[in-house]
């Protein structure tokens, strides 16, 4: 047997493990890591990677379009882009937020449902972590992915705007505020979609049911509330605006950017406190129900 540098003799094969055991902390991190890998199709076949990357591309395409349009307008009429209200960082989630929702609805249940239906969950529950730790780690994995998916197009847009501007330096000094704003807005929308997706996925028996439920609620509530708030009195309409599931994080986005980009006009009459309070209430309630589901999980 040859000895190498360190002078160790390798005994191939199963033996006792004398190394470190990091317990609950490592277990939670492992479930989180596995969740991210599942969502992005890493360590799985090539087919599993297709859908996540189509979604990321789909969310970045509008950003590219915005950047190109802004650059083109800038070149055609010098300084025109300042006056014209071209879509920018503030408008982004109002327009492409649907892609984030769809992405979460399709990918998110993948992190919760198969573990329950294939019985893998019982292997997790006999390891040094609690059922609620598991649920939170999965939620955090979805959040990690969603934050990245929410930020990528904004960064693409930023790059496009900076390099499309006649003087990139002055563009940044004029618009630096957009950067922290879109980072926070991206986090706000990512937390929202991750939490409500986790809620649907925690209770649905099949992945498809969770996805169908989420998309159904999102699209239908937007269409109904969008139509209804235009016909009813504003006094009622502003409260109805709170029922459009997909628009709730957009209201917060609008507060962050101090602009109105939400498609539901009736929401302008609501105070910021109500909008933020409603957002937090929904996220907290959904999160509490996810934990409750896993605390009472019966096998």
């Amino acid at each position: 047997m040859s000895e190498r540098g360190s002078g160790q003799v390798f005994d191939l094969g199963f033996r006792r493990y004398e190394g470190q055991r990091e317990g609950r902390r490592r277990a939670v991190r492992a479930v989180h890591k596995d969740g991210v890998r599942t969502a992005m199709g890493l360590g799985r076949g090539g087919k599993a990677k297709v859908l996540p990357w189509i979604f990321i591309a789909a969310s970045a395409i509008p950003a590219l379009v915005f950047a190109l349009v802004a650059g083109a307008v800038d070149r055609l009429a010098d300084g025109f882009s300042e006056a014209a209200d071209l879509p920018s960082h503030a408008d982004y989630y109002g327009i492409a937020g649907i892609v984030l929702f769809l992405f979460a609805a399709v990918v998110g249940p993948e992190l919760f449902c198969p573990d329950r239906s294939s019985g893998t969950i019982s292997l997790y529950l006999v390891r040094p972590l609690r059922a609620t730790d598991y649920a939170m780690a999965r939620w955090a994995a979805l959040l990690t992915v969603m934050v990245v998916v929410a930020w990528i197009p904004q960064l693409v847009l930023l790059a496009g705007l900076v390099f499309g501007a006649p003087e990139p330096g002055s563009y940044i000094s004029d618009h630096w505020k957009d950067i922290p704003r879109f980072l926070v807005a991206g986090l706000v929308i990512a937390v929202y979609v991750s939490t409500i997706t986790s809620l649907a996925a925690a209770y649905a028996k099949r992945r498809a049911y969770a996805a169908a439920f989420l998309i159904g609620v999102l699209i239908i509530s937007a269409a109904v509330i969008g139509g209804v708030t235009e016909t009813v009195d504003d006094g009622v309409g502003r409260w109805l605006a709170l029922l459009s599931v997909g628009d709730i994080p957009i209201y917060v986005n609008d507060i962050i950017f101090d602009e109105r980009t939400s498609s539901i006009e009736a929401a302008r009459d609501l105070s910021n406190a109500v909008k933020i309070g409603w957002y937090l209430a929904i996220v907290a309630t959904a999160g509490a129900f996810v934990l409750r589901r896993y605390r009472k999980l019966s096998l």
């Binding site: 859908l51 189509i54 789909a58 395409i61 492409a96 649907i98 399709v106 992945r207 996805a211």
Partner: peptide
């Protein structure tokens, strides 16, 4: 295996979102 996801993409991103651009 992910028919619903692809179908949603088609209906709401292709026809919905991209259709507006």
């Amino acid at each position: 295996r992910r028919a619903l996801g692809v179908g949603l993409l088609y209906a709401f991103v292709w026809e919905g979102l991209f259709g507006t651009f």
